[in-house]
Structure formats: structure tokens, C-alpha cells
Amino acid sequence: MSKHLTDFILHLADSTLILGQRNGEWCGHGPVLEQDIAITNITLDLIGQARSLYQYAAKLINEVSKLSESEVPPAEGFKAASEDTLAYLRTEREFKNFLLVEQPNSDWGQTILRQFLFSTWQYYLYQQLKEKGSDTTLAAIAEKSLKEISYHVRWSGEWVIRLGDGTAESKKRMAHAIQELWPYTGELFLPAPYEKVAEVDFDKLKPAWFKKVSDVFNEATLLVPQHVYMHTGGKTGTHTEHLGYMLAELQYMQRSFPGCEW
């Protein structure tokens, strides 16, 4: 029961952290100064959200491990879980993020499309977590994050419209980005075993997401793909080859110099 809840929170945290890490690669490379700042602002929002979720997951993990301490003595070098150990000391197979967020950056259009698809999913899911409120900590994190997410949806949605309904070149690039990323959107609505405990209502989540995305695509004169093969596995730890490289960079310092601080 509790393990499932922890896994669900880690899934939310990992998806947010990994997208933040991907967006962070734009820092200093944005198409114009203003957009460089905008995408890195969003990155900081995402990493902030990931921190709240990791802190909560760490708290739950430590509560469980204290209960079992009397029976099994903790392994040597055992350290209490923290936001840092969860982000820096788990392996690729332990990460539960969507495949969507680990895909490498190509052009600006692909980056903002990925942000739009993800933020829209986040928006409707967090609404559910906030309204259900059965887990007060999760509901509070959702409520706080929703203010940021609403802006991310608006910002990225307007970019999708601007580029889709822009020049021939920008439209071509957006169509290409949709073709590239759409096969990773099926996973957003494929329940993982640990999600039963979170009572996510996928029957409501998917149509809400699809309507928002279709509305924006229509305004952007872009087509919604039909009958696409969907890649899955990220939520349960089977990732594309890209995540390993990301974690190598993300975790390098803690792996090389355990416990280092600055």
C-alpha cells in the first residue's frame, strides 16, 4: 500500500525532474534571450516541484524503514532517504519517468510541444489530486504547482499555435515534432500497478487532455495523429537509451564524490 504510494510520488517526481534536466540544456542556447529565460524559468519551476515530491517520498520511505528496523538491521552505510539520495543515487531502472520527457532535444518546436503535452497532462492530473484531497500533502503540492503549471500550459500552448500557424518552415517543424513525440503520449494514460492506490481517474484524465490538445492543434492548423503505435515502459522503469546518458550527467558529482556539498 505505502510502497505503491511512494512509487506513484516517485513517478511524478522523476517525470518532472527529467523534463527539467532536458529543458535545462537550453540554458544559454535559447533562440532569443527572452525565450532562453522563459524556458529556464519553467525548468526551475519543474525542479522545484520535483523537490517537494522527493521530500515527501523520502519522508514516507523513512517512516517505513523505521518500522522494519527492529526486525532487520539496516545495511552497512545505510542512510536515511532524502530528496538528494532519491534524485542522485537511484539507477535508470528505478526511475519511473515517462519516456516522453527523456527524449533528446531537437529544435525549439519539439521542446515546446513536449512541454505542452506534459504540462497539459500535469494540469488535469494535479486538478484531480487537489480535488480528491485524500492525501493532504499531495493535494497541497498539487495546489501549489497548479499556479505554475497553468502558466506553462498557456505559454507552451501559445507557442504551438504561433509556430503551427506561422510560416511554412515553422509549420513543417511542428508537424515533424508531433510525429516524433506523439508515440510517447499513450503512456500518459496507461495505468501502472502503483497508480491504483492514487485513485487517478484515467477515464476523466484522457478525454480532458485530448480535448485541450486537439483544441490547440486545431487553432494551430496542425493535425492530431490517428492510430499511432505507442511506446511504453517508462513508468515501470524500462527506458529508452537516452535516460542513461542523462543520469550519467545528472548524477556524476554524487557518484564520483559521495556526499559532496557546495
Binding site: E25, H29, P31, S106, D107
Partner: peptide, 12 residues
């Protein structure tokens, strides 16, 4: 370099 976005695909 890893993490570097080539100019021709960098959006600019």
C-alpha cells in the same frame, strides 16, 4: 558536445 544544441536545429 553532449547537451549542446547545434545551431541549425536550435530554433534560432
Amino acid at each position: 558536445f553532449y547537451g549542446d544544441i547545434p545551431d541549425e536545429t536550435g530554433g534560432g
